[in-house]
């Protein structure tokens, strides 16, 4: 139930379409969504949960430890955004780890450049 798009029926969050998208993705709506997301991620951090979406175990752990924050998150964000942010959390973590690993091995991270022709 925690991350079902139709989980919240009260009207306190921003108005959404039947599919769970924002009706108006305005700045205030985005700010509320980010706030709810940060609160949810903080809860995940406290409970040492990285992945709250991709694995069954992760979803179960999230539901028991941060169920309320997850509902708030879902209520304040478009459903697609919730999925996006949850997946992004995992990807960002992996990216950080990879960068750390490369740097620990003495490699350099070089930003990609446009190829320059003569």
């Amino acid at each position: 139930m925690g991350w079902s798009p139709f989980g919240s029926s009260d009207d306190s969050g921003p108005r959404k379409t039947s599919g769970g998208a924002f009706e108006k993705p305005s700045r205030t709506n985005r700010a509320k969504c980010y706030e709810a997301r940060d609160a949810f991620f903080e809860c995940l951090d406290r409970n040492n949960i990285l992945d709250s979406i991709n694995s069954k175990a992760g979803r179960a752990a999230t539901a028991s430890a941060c169920g309320k924050a997850d509902q708030e998150f879902e209520k304040n964000c478009a459903h697609s955004w919730v999925e996006y942010f949850k997946k992004q959390r995992v990807v960002n973590y992996q990216k950080e780890q990879t960068i750390k690993k490369i740097e620990a091995e003495g490699g350099e991270i070089i930003a990609p450049q446009l190829p320059l022709k003569k």
Partner: peptide, 8 residues
């Protein structure tokens, strides 16, 4: 897309 559909 259907009206109201949520996608990125």
């Amino acid at each position: 897309v259907k009206p109201g559909q949520d996608y990125l």
